[in-house]
Design a protein around this nucleic acid. Structure first.
Length: 504
RNA sequence: GGUCCCAUCGUCUAGCGGCCUAGGAUGUCACCCUUUCAAGGUGAAGACACGGGUUCGAGUCCCGUUGGGACUACCA
């Protein structure tokens, strides 16, 4: 396996701007970025917008946003420039046309005049006859007269590559070792479409040559077209880059690759996002998502799986890439995100939590936010969960719990009212309304009430927070303050009283 | 169907011929801690797909079988 070259390391991530960034695309970008940074090389962003039918004007913005969010900065490309531009393929059309013409002139490519409909019919026929559905090369050796006839019909030709009809194409892939293909099984791939735009195959080779790309790291989807690309390089007489075909991420169940058309679901039936923007919206940390992605198909070694991208850069190595495809492990992402959340300084976490609370229409008091952040820190796996767990701190008005949630396990209403009343009386006397005194006072009550800590604390929790699951009780009461805490306890007592009277 | 790629616990992985009675992580399940929920601690169950070779010796090399995946567009 060879991943070394005498050339300076220049790698690229070349997405097509058809929407937000796919999670698999982010991993491909990450691997390229890690490789570039490890070798102190250049990481290039190139936009492959050669399909006019899928043009989305907002996509470039969304795409670069996602890359920036993930911390993958590019040295050359849109928004930053560079001396090998332009970096958007639709702005490089003359280059592809010029080189297609040179292939035509050398007899290494030819014009084909079939319409898309005719080609489709050809394929359908082949499939119906259980034959491999390929182009039959019927225009590979057209005479000038035949060509003139098609031209006269007003047909707009495509340019197809004359793939060698015998021999083998053998390539050393940096993650897979030697891969070999029989040339006669390959297609005469379209290089230039009828609209004058190049296909991926053409644009890839021309651009990677002129941008002096040293290593092409891309997903395995491209492996089947590698022989065509390789022969194209040969036809141009250019030196091939080193190819590294990365494994793909499959759905969590291992069936098929992740796609937004067919979104994967977890064991609870929840949709697992496919696009990076959905991960951002759910409150995954960029450092966690990067870390997670780096652990799929690559491993840090030393039995370490929590690491920073700085550390990953130091270690990154093509030789450690596992060629096998892998299922996307969502529960591991959640765990890792939790780990990164817990590793954050409180102020930092608070700062990141804030937009999620605001998005839920809560008015965030920074002082309170700073106080609750440590309580939330060990309890959330994604930033968005803060709303459910601690959003009540920022409600304009307290939302009381349903009365039937107040009595805890094995408690009746009378017991619950008594527990609340007794607690209220005791709490009234607490002057230093902080964790230790609060805990001592309430804990000393359980025995006379004949309740367990869990029962008494639980009742108070529901009364004070309005929720069954919340930040811890005494810390919460301390933040809320004596007055507010007591008001809420009284409110709970009253509503229990009322409901009992109604019942009797 | 054809071509190509891949194959270690459910999942992500370590392993590049003897250090493997196969290591880590996650998830699951117990127990501990405990103020709900977490976090933390301890422990348990859990894998070399199968069959042939090669070799003194195979998870590691070769072949086949099976299984999975990718591709099969004037999309990338």
């Amino acid at each position: 396996m060879t991943d070394s070259t005498s050339r300076p390391v220049r790698v690229r991530f070349a997405p097509s701007p058809t929407g937000s960034l796919h999670i698999g695309g982010l991993r491909t970008a990450l691997f390229n970025w890690l490789f570039a940074r490890h070798h102190k090389g250049t990481f290039i962003l190139r936009i492959e917008d050669t399909d006019q039918t899928r043009f989305d004007p907002t996509a470039l913005q969304t795409l670069t946003e996602a890359l920036r969010w993930a911390g993958l900065d590019w040295d050359e490309g849109p928004q930053v420039g560079g001396s090998y531009g332009p970096y958007v393929q639709s702005e490089r059309l003359p280059l592809y046309q010029e080189w297609a013409k040179s292939l035509l002139d050398n007899g290494k490519a030819y014009k084909a005049y079939e319409t898309p409909e005719e080609l489709k019919k050809m394929r359908d026929d082949m499939t119906a006859r259980k034959l491999p559905p390929g182009y039959n090369r019927q225009h590979r050796d057209l005479t000038p007269e035949q060509q003139a006839k098609f031209e006269a019909e007003g047909r707009a030709p495509v340019v197809r590559f004359k793939m060698p009809l015998d021999g083998e194409t053998v390539v050393q892939d940096a993650v897979r070792g030697e891969v070999r293909f029989e040339n006669d099984k390959q297609q005469d791939t379209v290089l230039l479409k009828a609209d004058g735009f190049p296909t991926y195959h053409m644009a890839h080779v021309v651009d990677d040559h002129f941008m002096e790309i040293s290593h092409v790291m891309r997903a395995v989807e491209w492996l089947p077209s590698l022989p065509v690309h390789w022969q194209l390089w040969e036809a141009f007489g250019w030196e091939q880059p080193i190819y590294a075909h990365l494994p793909v991420m499959l759905n969590p169940n291992g069936k098929g690759k992740m796609s937004k058309r067919n979104p994967p679901v977890d064991k609870f039936g929840n949709i697992i996002p496919v696009m990076v923007h959905d991960y951002i919206a759910r409150g995954y940390l960029p450092e966690a998502l990067d870390n997670f992605l780096a652990n799929i198909g690559w491993s840090f070694g030393d039995e370490r799986e929590i690491f920073s991208m700085l550390e990953a850069v130091e270690r990154f190595d093509l030789a450690r890439i596992n060629p096998a495809n892998s299922a996307f492990p969502p529960e591991k992402l959640d765990w890792l995100n939790g780990e990164h959340i817990r590793a954050l300084p409180v102020e930092d976490l608070a700062r990141r939590l804030k937009p999620f609370l605001e998005k839920a229409d809560l008015e965030v008091n920074t002082e309170v936010l700073l106080k609750i952040t440590p309580l939330v820190q060990t309890r959330i796996k994604t930033l968005s969960e803060v709303v459910e767990l601690a959003g009540f701190f920022f409600h304009e008005q307290f939302i009381p719990p349903p009365v039937d949630k107040l009595p805890q396990k094995k408690m009746d209403v009378a017991q619950t009212i008594l527990a609340l009343k007794t607690s209220e009386t005791a709490l009234e006397k607490v002057t230093d309304f902080t964790f230790n005194p609060l805990h001592d006072v309430i804990a000393s009550l359980t025995e006379e009430l004949g309740l367990t800590n869990g029962q008494l604390f639980g009742t108070l929790r529901v009364a004070v927070t309005g929720q069954q699951i919340s930040t811890p009780l005494f810390e919460t009461m301390e933040i809320l303050g004596k007055e507010e805490s007591l008001v809420r306890i009284k409110l709970a007592m009253n509503s229990l009283d009322n409901s009992e009277q109604k019942a009797s």
